[in-house]
């Protein structure tokens, strides 16, 4: 597939543009900060977005499967799922790649190119569907954690209310079942 070769050659430009478009979804001075601050721990958001996009681009260009793409996608979606974005804004960055690919394909035209572009766009659409799943799982996770935090508060109190005295019937079973030692269900 020729377009893959062209995009591989222009990978740095494609990546820079893609990153910039994601960074530009943040207000004020933030895009500049995300772009310029090099230290990954001083700029964790910028670092994660760049790493994630690079992983996704490499994956798309090498025909990687969903399992390989998912962790890179998660690096970005997990963050955007808890930021000040609507669901569509949170996953839009995937579609932004389409426009970039169309502009960065090297000025060629013709039927073969149209087919190749169409195939690449199908891959990007597939990625968008994955992003949707990813976004939903993050939001569900968020609410699971919230519910678990509430339940923990209640269960620690209930544990005291219902604890049989040592030696009393059921005390041993109670202790064994005690969820203090159980692994977190939400984990």
């Amino acid at each position: 597939m020729e377009i893959t070769g062209i995009l591989k050659e222009r990978k740095k430009d494609v990546l820079d543009r893609w990153f910039q478009e994601v960074a530009d979804t943040y207000p004020g001075e933030t895009p500049r900060f995300l772009r310029n601050k090099a230290d990954r721990f001083a700029n964790p958001l910028g670092h994660a977005v760049r790493q994630g996009l690079e992983g996704l681009l490499n994956g798309l260009l090498s025909g990687a499967g969903d399992d390989e793409l998912a962790p890179h996608l998660d690096e970005i979606v997990r963050i955007r799922a808890v930021q000040e974005f609507s669901p569509s804004e949170a996953v839009r960055f995937v579609f932004q790649l389409k426009g970039i690919v169309r502009e960065e394909h090297g000025g060629r035209s013709g039927e073969a190119l149209a087919d190749e572009l169409s195939e690449m766009e199908t891959r990007i659409d597939r990625l968008a569907l994955l992003a949707f799943d990813n976004y939903m799982s993050c939001r569900e996770r968020l609410f699971e954690i919230r519910v678990k935090e509430l339940k923990d508060t209640i269960s620690v109190q209930a544990r005291n209310t219902w604890r049989p005295a040592a030696g009393e019937a059921g005390s041993e079973t109670f202790q064994k079942r005690n969820d203090r030692r159980g692994k977190d269900e939400a984990r």
């Binding site: 943040y26 207000p27 933030t30 700029n43 963050i79 930021q83 000040e84």
Partner: peptide, 16 residues
């Protein structure tokens, strides 16, 4: 400006 964890995590300039 870029030292607050809320700024780094939200990208919201009012958290600078």
């Amino acid at each position: 400006a870029d030292k607050c964890h809320f700024y780094l995590g939200s990208g919201d300039p009012k958290n600078m």
